[in-house]
Every structure is written in structure tokens, then in C-alpha cells.
Write a protein that binds this DNA or RNA. Structure first.
Lengths: 110, 110
DNA sequence: TCCATGTTTCCAGAGTTCATGAAACATTGG
DNA sequence: CCAATGTTTCATGAACTCTGGAAACATGGA
């Protein structure tokens, strides 16, 4: 991943509503959620959510698909993957024990 | 990790100079780097860097220690650990294959 | 065709963030 | 002590971000 993409992803995630929405979609997994369902879950107005989803979309962190009148959103785990790889690139200064716990945490989450 | 901390960390990382500085410190590992060395490596003015380091410090992503006239900074991998755990909490909607590549990427980085 | 529903776009104003120059502070050596 | 070095603090203006109301757009059903 390039720095520009990483910055876009990080700055997209560094806002309350967008972080909530993204994590909701991560939890939803392959099923995703419609914009309306996200609105309701988070208690955000449609126009505000729409603006925020489009920022996540632009950052490549989510994708979407029209489904009748609704639009369904999905977390893009590939992009997440790329972001984490970028952040931890060449980490630990050749001392793998330092960041072993990071691996364990993530293994536990999945 | 709580959402407030995660937001602070993400917003700290979502800025060019700070992302560079943090990644530099991740690469430096346990040795860390002095503020001056970071300045030189990134080509940033001391006051600008100082402001940005203090934001990383506040977010808990780096720590520091005075060393004579210099101040040495270190990436805090524990906080990074917490952040990744928070982002991937309950991920994949019960479908572990989806985020397996994320784990592989990180394992390769370390 | 017309209306209801779900979502996005546009606009404007309040608030936040950023880099910069100048000044202050802390530590070391003469 | 005093000067030099390394770093931080402060104040400022320009640029950016966020939210909310109003309006537009897309789809499906009567």
C-alpha cells in the first residue's frame, strides 16, 4: 500500500461516525448492511451518514452494491489488510518478540 | 481499548508528518530515535516536529526519554496492539477465512 | 404515471488543524 | 556563570472538516 492510500484510510477512520460505521461493517462480515440499517444502528441522519460513507468509500475501506431501493455496504478487508501491513512494515527493528503480542491479539479477534 | 483512545490514535496517524515519524520509530524498534534525528530524516522543522510528536505522545503511540540535551522517542507497540485489536473486534461475521490474509500480512512484517 | 421510500448532493457556517516565526526552556561544556 | 545546542511553547492566519436543512435523484409499487 502507498502512503497516500494509508493516509486516506487512517483519516477516514479517525472520525467518530465513520469509525463506528466501519466497525459495524467489519462485524457484519460478508452480509454487509444497508445505509438505512447503519443509520438506525448509529442514530445518525441519512445525509450525514451518506457523506461519511462516501469518505470511507473513497478511502477504499468499504464497497457498496445497490439492492432495490437500498444500498448495501461492506467492509473491505483487503484494504484493511494493506493498511496494517503498511503500518507494521519492517517493524520491531529486527526484534520480533516486541510485536509478537500484536499478532496474538489479532489472531484472537478472528 | 476504548473508542476515545482509538480515535486519538487514528487521528494522530492520519497526518503525513506524524505517519512518517511513527513508521520511522516502528522501524527503529527498541533503539528509538532522538527528535533531532527524526527532524533530519524527515526534513521537517524542529517546532513542527515537536508539535506533531506531542500529538503522537498524547495519543499514547510513542513514549520519550531525555538523554542529555536530546530527547529520544520510541514507538509504543502495546498501544498499536490495542488499536489493531479494537479495529478487528469480532471481525469477519463468524467467517474466519475472510480476514486470514490480514494475519498473514502481519506475520510476514514481523 | 404518480407517489412513497431510500439515498445522495449541495450549500453555508461553526469549529478544528496545520505550518510558521519568534521566544522560551533545559542541558552541557568552557 | 555564560554561550551553544537541542527541543518545546505560543500566537497567528490559511486551509480543511463536520453537520444540518433543503433539494435532487433512483427505484419500486399502485
Amino acid at each position: 500500500m502507498e502512503k497516500t492510500q494509508a493516509l486516506a484510510a487512517l483519516s477516514a477512520l479517525s472520525q467518530d461516525t465513520r469509525l463506528d460505521a466501519f466497525r459495524l461493517l467489519v462485524k457484519a462480515g460478508g452480509e454487509g448492511m444497508t445505509a438505512g440499517a447503519i443509520c438506525e444502528a448509529l442514530g445518525v441522519r441519512p445525509n450525514t451518514l451518506s457523506a461519511n460513507l462516501s469518505i470511507l468509500l473513497n478511502a477504499g475501506l468499504v464497497s457498496n452494491r445497490r439492492e432495490g431501493r437500498s444500498i448495501r455496504y461492506f467492509a473491505d478487508m483487503d484494504r484493511m489488510n494493506g493498511l496494517l501491513g503498511f503500518l507494521l512494515e519492517d517493524c520491531c527493528g529486527g526484534n520480533p518478540e516486541v510485536c509478537r503480542p500484536v499478532l496474538d491479539t489479532i489472531a484472537r479477534a478472528c
